[in-house]
Amino acid sequence: MTTGDERKDAIGYAFTAPYILFLLVFTAYPLLFSFYLVFHSWDLITPPEYVGLKNFYFLMHDTDFWQALLNTLIFLAIHIPAQVVFSIMIAMALAEKIVAKTFFRAAFFLPVIISGAVVTILWAKLYSTDTGIFNQLLGLAGIAPVKWLTSTGLAMPSIAVMATWKNMGFYIVLFLAGLLNIPAHLYEVSKIEGTTRWQDFWHITLPLLRPTMLLVVVLSTFGAFSLFIEPYVMTGGGPLNSTMSVVLYMYKHAFLFQHMGYAATIGFALAAIILLVVLIQKKYLDSD
């Protein structure tokens, strides 16, 4: 009996051993080392120097870092409402009995599978002030060219619109699944009571889509805090840091200035903020 158990244990350990090793090297070690790095100054060449809480002190007073956080909030303020409204609208259209449903779903999902680098390079062309399609269309209507990516006020909103376009297919599919989960008899009851479709939407559809909404908001937030290639390609973080994202800022400290300790501190703070924001969203959207 004991020998049998030992044999079973041995196989179980053998099967999980590669994962444990992988985890120790590529997850546990970096995790622990990040706690070391945030208290040190290190340029990767000379030995790390202990600096106590200096990195955190510097971060608190680093206006560029706070600007990057503010930029993320601007992004979220445009991205989340646009994402939710348009995704629900299109998902509701898709939930009806229509022909070519598979085609539409596949078409909406197309930008989701395409590399963010390509989407960004492509949209940089579409946003171009002189030759981009948006300004060409505005030109047809007799409107002067708009500086989509080169004005401080519009650059971040432009990036948010592009990100919304790229991810919408994903959120449409999530909302579609949420809509199809709503029991049909709920709508039949309301038919008997003679409510309008608009009332149905507010009192049945929206409340029951709440779990999906939470998922969409949380995933959008993760996406917003991961912005990197979009500002890197389109604006380099400019003009005047108006599109600087936190990850791009971290990247710059690590690779332009070799500030490993400070870059790790930015990552540390960002992770803490992400967890905090997601907890707040959960609490707010889960209640009632």
Binding site: L31, F33, G267
Partner: peptide
């Protein structure tokens, strides 16, 4: 969050 372990 991946951002935490990226630099280390």
């Amino acid at each position: 969050p991946g951002q935490l372990t990226l630099i280390p």
